[in-house]
């Protein structure tokens, strides 16, 4: 598959560093593009997904000061795969710590999937720091969103991938799959932990793109990636995203009204279905909704990447 999907050219950071955010955690961060440009922070997915160099390419490097960072416990942040002091509100505080460290007054917040969740949580807490939002593959932790992916939704379209996901867990424990995976992912049995991590990640990666992508599935089976991804994601899921209630982000949406935004969502996103974006759009009419036909969940889907770049281009001059 071609990578020529409308992204800006490859670029190297002009600055990278590690920021200590607690006694335990240090975060990797980097800046690329134009040091005098419009600041934007990229919030990666998962949680636990980490950043990649290609994430710089959603932004015009001549016009943006592009900040990427790896959230607690993943990517190049340390300690790797740690779930201690690792909550949504810790991450929101980290974003503020990083912003102050970089002496940025306000920035654009760009995030997809879990990155959209974190972007909303951050913007609802610190709306005065957010100049615009570009969100993709919306996920807000509503009960029917969890039920869709780990219950009756996705499996209806991907019964074959689901078959593999549930068969990694003994039948007696399948009534609560997330709890069963969680026990293994945080348990002491290394073999069970790794097996569970691979099965957990493979389920998600098998359904993330419109056309199944063998490279993505192979990446998800890579142990360094998958342990952080599965452990952190499952940790957040069993804890309901550390929200006060599943509807918190939607209940508090009025706090981001007035912030310009673009919501990009793949029609055939089967991880976070388009309904999530539709609801957000209705509650936050300042944001433009772009449903990309014939695209799945991933930011790398051709139509999705192009729509995201159009959105950041639109905001680049403002």
């Amino acid at each position: 598959m071609s990578n020529d999907i409308g992204l800006y050219p490859e670029i190297e950071p002009y600055h990278a560093g590690m920021l200590s955010v607690s006694d335990l955690h240090q975060l990797y961060y980097e800046e690329s593009g134009n040091p005098q440009g419009r600041p934007v922070v990229f919030l990666h997915g998962g949680p636990g997904g980490g950043t990649e160099p290609r994430h710089r390419r959603f932004f015009d490097p001549a016009r943006y000061r592009i900040v990427l960072f790896d959230q607690r416990g993943c990517g190049r942040s340390i300690p790797h795969a740690s779930i201690t002091d690792n909550t949504t509100w810790d991450l929101v505080d980290d974003i503020e710590t990083l912003r102050r460290h970089l002496e940025i007054e306000r920035w654009q917040v760009f995030g997809g999937s879990w990155g959209s969740t974190l972007a909303l949580a951050y913007a609802e807490k610190h709306p005065e720091r957010v100049s615009e939002m570009v969100l993709r593959g919306i996920f807000t932790f509503a009960e029917d969103e969890m039920e869709w992916f780990y219950g009756a939704g996705t499996q209806t379209l991907f019964p074959d991938a689901w078959h593999a996901f549930i068969h990694a867990i003994p039948e007696a424990e399948r009534h609560d799959l997330i709890a069963a995976y969680h026990r293994r992912l945080v348990g002491d049995d290394r073999r069970a932990r790794e097996q569970a991590a691979r099965a957990w990640s493979t389920w998600e990666c098998s359904v993330a793109t419109l056309m199944q992508d063998p490279n993505l599935i192979a990446h998800c089976e890579d142990l360094a990636f998958t342990l952080a991804f599965a452990r952190i994601e499952c940790h957040y899921f069993v804890n309901g995203g550390f929200l006060e209630r599943p509807t918190q982000l939607m209940d508090d949406i009025s706090r981001v009204r007035g912030i310009p935004g673009v919501i990009v969502h793949g029609r055939y996103d089967v991880i976070c279905p388009a309904r999530n974006a539709w609801r957000l759009h209705k509650a936050w009419p300042d944001a433009e909704l772009v449903i990309v036909e014939a695209a799945g969940h991933s930011a790398n889907e051709p139509g999705i990447a192009a729509a995201l770049v159009r959105a950041t281009d639109r905001f680049a001059g403002g």
Binding site: R267, A274, A277
Partner: peptide, 14 residues
């Protein structure tokens, strides 16, 4: 139920 009550509705909310 999937098509007429809840299921496909999540993918085609519009």
């Amino acid at each position: 139920d999937w098509f007429y009550q809840e299921g496909a509705s999540a993918i085609f909310p519009d």
